[in-house]
């Protein structure tokens, strides 16, 4: 007769009394422990607030010239009363541009455009790219070769050059810029999605679904996609920074947002020959662009570390 000592259940005390955390809440905790990520979030948070409250914060109409309204000269330097500018002169925090418009108000409104351009074009690229990549990775075979072959061709162009070529065909304008940058960014997301899908496809839980006859579409969108999301989120955040830079460059070249739209790149492009006489017209929109791009870059790097995404090629 064997003596079995029943383990008293009371002895199995949980070591930690906390509930296991999910991927996202762990990531968020790690994110808040990284200095650079916090700086990125602060920058982006302020930027979003500025974009929302631009009408409240702005002192002037961003597209309206002040000729005949105020006694001011075009491209006048900043005038801030608190910093010693004579009180009889009208106050303009960042000075005036070549069309006698208040630069400060234009820059505030510009934040709306840059955020919009970055988020919409990357969103567009992620939706199309991820779908193509997912289908490509899941189906394999000819579909895979065809889709990825096309993506390789798109990747063979330097991104700004291809965007320029596309905008030349579509015609200049903000919407076409969005579209061009979106198209140019598609291959990156398609590749990431495909490699995620390829590795997840082999997992047991997908096999299990397949063997009980769950339709392909539901496996792909219900089980595989949610698990492939992390690298997309990281790349998407960094991609917004690139998209904003490219859009600003296109506007700088005169292909993107058209005047009088207060877009940072086009503001700099219009006044680029005045850099030696009125540097504030380059410096202020320039700083706005740098901070925005920096914010997305810092947040993206932080997310990558927090979510522990290894570069999958």
């Amino acid at each position: 007769m064997s003596t079995t000592t029943a383990t008293p259940s009371a002895a199995v005390e949980p070591i930690f009394n906390t509930k296991p955390r999910g991927l996202w809440s762990t990531a968020l905790r790690r994110l808040f422990h990284r200095r650079s990520a916090i700086i990125g979030m602060i920058i982006l948070g302020s930027l979003i607030l500025i974009a929302i409250f631009a009408p409240v914060l702005a002192t002037h109409d961003p597209t309206k010239s002040l000729i005949g309204i105020e006694d001011v000269q075009k491209r006048a330097a900043p005038c801030i009363h608190l910093l010693g500018c004579p009180a009889d002169q009208p106050q303009h925090f960042f000075g005036l541009d070549g069309n006698v418009r208040d630069l400060y108000s234009r820059i505030l409104y510009g934040s709306r455009l840059s955020l919009m351009v970055g988020i919409i074009s990357v969103g567009f690229a992620i939706v199309i790219g991820a779908t193509l990549g997912a289908i490509s990775g899941y189906m394999g075979g000819y579909t895979d070769n065809l889709v990825m072959g096309f993506m390789d061709i798109l990747l063979a162009f330097p991104s700004l050059i291809l965007a320029i070529a596309i905008v030349t065909v579509l015609g200049p304008g903000l919407i076409n810029t969005l579209l061009a940058i979106g198209i140019v960014s598609i291959p990156v997301y398609a590749r990431i999605m495909r490699s995620s899908v390829l590795s997840i496809k082999q997992q047991d839980y997908v096999m299990a679904d397949r063997s009980i006859g769950v339709p392909s579409g539901r496996i792909l969108f219900g089980n595989i996609l949610p698990n492939a999301l992390t690298p997309l989120v990281v790349q998407g955040t960094l991609g917004i920074a690139v998209a904003i830079l490219d859009a600003a460059a296109l506007s700088f070249l005169g292909l993107g947002a058209q005047p009088p739209t207060p877009e940072w790149g086009s503001m700099i492009g219009q006044e680029r020959n005045q850099v030696f006489t009125a540097p504030h017209l380059i410096i202020f929109p320039g700083i706005a662009l740098i901070l925005t791009v920096l914010g997305f870059n810092l947040l993206g790097d932080g997310l990558r570390d927090a979510l522990d995404v290894r570069q999958r090629s």
Partner: peptide, 22 residues
């Protein structure tokens, strides 16, 4: 390095031209 990837080429170009030429 972080600033370097965040500065638009045209902003850096114009500002450095201003710095070194003016």
């Amino acid at each position: 390095a972080n600033l370097g990837v965040s500065i638009p080429v045209f902003v850096l170009g114009l500002l450095s031209a201003y710095l070194f030429a003016v």
